[in-house]
Structures are given as C-alpha cells and as structure tokens.
Design a protein around this nucleic acid. Structure first.
Length: 269
DNA sequence: ATGGCTACCTATGGTAGA
C-alpha cells in the first residue's frame, strides 16, 4: 500500500498538476493539505475518474484537508478533537482497508505559528498564532495517545510545519527564531514522536539535504534552499509494516508547482 | 532581506503562507 502526503497549496490552482502526479506516482492513498476550498468546490469527479474515493474537510479560502483513496475508506471523521471552538479545517481521519489488513490514517495540516509572540517570561501570548500552534499540538498528542492505546497500525501524515532538526534545513540559521524551528516547537513535536512513533523518512534515510518545501521567493528552489516539514509518523504496528519511503522532489521544478512536494511510504498491507 | 512569490477573495489591494 502506497500512502502519500502532499500540501497542494490550492486545489483550484493545482488540480491538473495533482492529476498528472497521481497518474505517475499511483499512490493508493493521497492525504492532501491546503485544499483552500469548501467541500462543494472540490473537483471530486476529476479524481473519481481515476478510481479514487474522495473525502474532504474544507473551508473557505484557507486550510482544508482531503483524502483520496483507491481502496475502500471506512469511518471517516473530520476535525481534531479537543476544542469545539476551533473552526480551522486541519484534520481528517479514515480507515483504509488493504489486501492484508487495515490502517487508520490521520491527515493533518499543523498550524504554521508565525508570527511568534512570546511574553516577558518566554511563554506564548494567549490568543496568538504561536499559542494556537502549541495548543493544537497538545490536542494532537492527546488524539495520538488514544489511537496508540488501540495497538493497531495507524499513520499520522501531513504538513507538520516543523523542521525537526537543523539537518532538515539548508540554512538552519535562517529559521532560528521561526515557529517552524523554535526549541518549543521541536520539543512539542518530540513529545508526540516519543510516545512511540517512527518518523518514516528518518527510519530509512539519514543525513542532510532532504527537503519537502522550497519557498516561492528568492529562488529558493534553484538554490536548493529547502526545508523538510512534511512527515509521516507511524504507530509501532505500522512501523513493522514499513517498506519504502520517498520524496517526489522533481515535482517542484514543474510549471506552477505547489511550494511543497509529495512525501510517500509503502506499507506491507 | 519581518521577504524577493503565490493563492485566495464577490477583491481591483489585503491577508496568509513558511
């Protein structure tokens, strides 16, 4: 089973690029972020023609996540539990049934968190974007703990907006005070990871120079000034099934690309 | 270099992204 995560930066602007990539990469499941569309505006028929089931959790203008699957989807849920007042569409779950078994998938678009606002004590300012990021990660951790208790294969994949280590940025010094790389952000990521997850890419590939995002500005792609912020976290039972990992870097060099590229795994399912 | 782009919106420039 091939599972990919891809922040497409707008389905309206990217549907043809997405179709092209799906035909080439042939993932069984694609977890999408930043569809930037309401559910009714998602061109689902384009993907149904390719054999995908389509489940969306969208909102107007910003955010929005979706799951495309060639395999049967069950028990789809939308929204990250833990705060009924949170109206941002950043989380979707579904169970995918493969030939050898099922896996629970969580597609996520973790808040960016910039600008970072800290008070004199170094604590995030309440109501600010950085506080939202950290509180969202606390809620994600709680959901992850619930799912881990089931002791079944599950995968949390998406745009984490976290640069886990300096080796995950071409210019780590440029990200020093950024919400994607601050020690508090990395600690929050590790608190989730250390519950017992395996970060799929790092389970297979070590060393610097592997990125999933290149800014549109300042020729970042041409200079390979990238960061690795799109991740797949595997439960212990999913990690046992991990075969391959990859980053479809070449996508970034095409016309009118997303600023992110697909990251994928294959599971023995 | 707190942004050199890009996408969205009932817009014609502001907001958000990372």
């Amino acid at each position: 089973m091939k599972i990919a995560t891809f922040n497409i930066n707008g389905i309206k602007a990217r549907h043809q690029a997405l179709v092209d990539w799906l035909k080439e990469a042939e993932p069984d499941v694609a977890l999408l972020q930043e569809i930037k569309s309401v559910d009714e505006g998602f061109p689902r028929e384009l993907f149904e023609e390719l054999g995908y089931s389509v489940e969306t959790h969208g909102q107007k203008s910003f955010n929005g996540v979706a799951i495309l699957s060639k395999l049967p989807l069950e028990d789809v849920t939308r929204g990250l539990p833990g705060d009924e007042s949170d109206e941002q569409a950043r989380w979707i779950e579904a169970t995918v049934v493969g030939d050898k078994g099922a896996v629970r998938l969580c597609g996520l678009y973790l808040p960016n968190g910039n600008p970072v606002e800290l008070d004199d004590a170094g604590q995030p300012v309440e109501g600010g974007k950085y506080a939202y990021k950290l509180s969202w990660m606390e809620r994600m951790k709680a959901r992850a703990e619930e799912l881990l208790a089931l002791e079944e294969p599950f995968v949390m994949a998406g745009d984490y907006n976290i640069i886990p280590q300096d080796e995950d940025a071409a210019k780590p010094e440029a990200w020093r005070g950024d919400a994607l790389a601050l020690p508090q952000s990395r600690e929050a990521f590790r608190r989730i990871l250390n519950l017992g997850f395996t970060e799929a890419f790092r389970a297979r590939v070590q060393g610097p120079g592997h990125y999933s995002f290149w800014d549109y500005q300042a020729g970042a792609w041409q200079k390979n000034n990238g960061i690795r912020i799109d991740h797949l976290l595997l439960s212990p039972q999913a990690a046992d099934l991990l075969r391959e990992v990859g980053i479809d870097k070449e996508i970034r060099g095409r016309d009118k690309p997303s600023d992110h590229v697909p990251v994928w795994i294959t599971l023995d399912l």
